[in-house]
Nucleic acid binder design. Structure first.
Length: 227
DNA sequence: TTATGGATTAGCT
DNA sequence: GCTAATCCATAAA
């Protein structure tokens, strides 16, 4: 699974995380089902594990960039000091307080964007941070967006929230507030029918406040999980 | 108005 | 393993 080049997309990834393929083009399109808004209208602690194994999709003109979600973190409301929502509604974090299923994109450390999806009903804050996906389709385009050579370790493409966002061309200007539950968006999340993976819950990483809360959800053993 | 630090990453040692 | 880079939202003054 380290070899690339000849075996470039389309790929498919089985439930046991083995890459197989290529698959017929129609098959991929036909099996993708966009997750509805109701999927996100729940506590992030339920949405988070439910998102593992689902597919993040970016439409770039005719191209499709896709990746299987393997690592996310839940961020709650006022009871979660690490959450951006804990300080109350501001211009920056307003999407977290809005309807479920919308993209919350913020800029950190002067360099990187991070993608979240809002959870819970309108008026109740909460969200899920996407920390890593396993690339499925459009890897060559992702390498371009990341600005790294295609000979680089595949894991550098989408492992970590900043890398993931860059690989999918995600910015606050372009994507903040976008509806991730609509196939009409150029950014959405879908179910390709793969069996739900095993879920491991750990402490969140990269934060100082509330660092002990077990709100990180990962596919154990997956090479693209960070940390 | 100024200061602080962050839901990170790349590049060294 | 360690640290510089880099900018913006928020806190402090």
């Amino acid at each position: 699974m380290t070899s690339r080049g000849a075996a470039f997309p389309p790929f498919s990834i089985r439930g046991d995380n083995q890459i197989v393929g290529p698959l017929p083009k129609q098959m991929k399109a036909a099996t993708l089902r966009v997750l509805p808004r109701s999927f996100y209208d729940r506590d992030p602690r339920l949405v988070g594990p439910g998102l593992l194994g689902k597919i993040l999709v970016r439409r770039e003109g005719r191209k499709l960039l896709t990746g299987r979600i393997v690592e996310v973190e839940a961020y709650l409301g006022t009871e979660d000091p690490a959450a951006h929502a804990s300080i109350g509604k501001t211009q920056r974090n307003a999407v977290l307080f809005g309807p479920p299923g919308l993209a919350y994109v913020y800029f950190v450390y002067g360099n990187h964007y991070c993608l979240n999806v809002s959870c819970l009903p309108d008026g109740v804050p909460g969200g899920i941070l996407f920390r890593a996906v396993e690339p499925v389709q459009g890897m060559n385009a992702m390498f371009k967006l990341r600005g790294i050579g295609e000979t680089s370790d595949l894991r550098r493409l989408t492992r970590g929230p900043g890398r993931l966002a860059a690989a999918f061309g995600i910015t606050r200007e372009r994507d903040n507030g976008k509806d991730l539950s609509s196939a009409r968006s150029d950014l959405y999340i879908a179910d390709d029918g793969a069996a739900p993976p095993e879920v491991l819950i750990t402490k969140r990483i990269g934060i100082k406040k509330a660092a002990d809360m077990p709100l990180r959800y990962i596919v154990p053993g997956n090479r693209f999980v960070s940390g």
